[in-house]
Amino acid sequence: MAEARMIEALIFDCDGVLVDTERDAHRVGFNKAFGEFGIDAEWSVQLYANLLLTAGGKERMKVYFDEFGWPNDKVAEYGGRDELIAALHKEKTRITSKLVSSLPVRPGVLRLVDEAIDAGVRLGVCTTSNPKFIDAVLDLFGPARKAKFEFVHAGDVVSKKKPAPEIYELAKQSLGLPPERCVVIEDSRNGLLAAKGAGFPCLVTTSTYTVDEDLSEADRIVPELGDEPNINVTLADLDELAAAHAA
């Protein structure tokens, strides 16, 4: 049975896929970090939706400050813009890593991970999030499931973040598999374009901030993976998706 299976690896994005973290963890963490640094900035739910069009937290802050003005006193205090951004991002990561422990894993994720483990399908994560943050997210899975993830490519491991395909090209190297033997699960247009750019079939589970994005390149779109009695995606479904992609 296992030899007939098309899919050999399953690659997850983190934010919006494993946990819907953007609104209630990352956004809150940025705002708390700004406050602790004495920076007059408050990212509303709507503003953060616009900022999410830029992948990567450090890059997001640069876009914001470029548009709304840099806190030049803090830039001078930290010795430059990049240095301030790095310090802010470090503090934001510390804050959000604590916040994530109170958030639920999205419906169907643990079920699908268990299906993959039982079938011998390999697991990995490709995300723009900080490695410490994704480590905290995977802690929600429990130690047995967490140990089954072969790789976590996170943060600044590549020079260009999503929608550039670099992080998924790195996943291909890690797995040593052709992309048609794998499926990527993403939630955003940036992530979708990155996965497709590397040649992977991609299923999208929409999240709070991505439900209205153009996701037309996806091989399939669902609101969530789903648990009983409302399962939307099984490993068998992903097997069929990969087979259709390879055809």
Rank of each mutant, 00 (worst) to 15 (best):
V121A: 03
M61V: 11
S188G: 13
G80F: 09
S216N: 05
V211G: 06
E3P: 02
V63Y: 00
V19K: 06
A236G: 00
D187V: 15
F37S: 14
E83A: 15
G191W: 05
F151I: 06
P71I: 12
F37G: 14
E180C: 07
K90I: 02
G191S: 14
E42K: 02
A195E: 12
S97R: 04
I167T: 08
K148V: 00
R189Q: 15
A49R: 11
E42L: 11
V184T: 12
I85T: 15
L138M: 12
A164V: 00
H245W: 10
D139G: 07
E224Y: 06
V45N: 08
V28E: 14
R5L: 14
E77R: 02
R111H: 00
H245T: 07
R220Y: 10
E224N: 13
I167P: 04
E224K: 06
P104G: 09
R94L: 09
V28G: 01
G80T: 10
V113P: 01
D82C: 05
I95A: 04
P143L: 08
V183T: 06
P107G: 12
A76V: 04
A218C: 15
A2Y: 01
E228C: 02
K196R: 15
V183N: 02
D139P: 00
V233R: 04
V45M: 03
G226T: 04
V100L: 09
K162H: 04
K58G: 15
V17M: 14
S129D: 08
N50M: 07
E3F: 01
K58D: 07
K172C: 01
D15Y: 02
S101T: 09
D114P: 00
C202M: 07
Q46T: 14
G108K: 03
G79A: 12
L175W: 09
T96Q: 12
K74N: 03
E217N: 11
S216D: 13
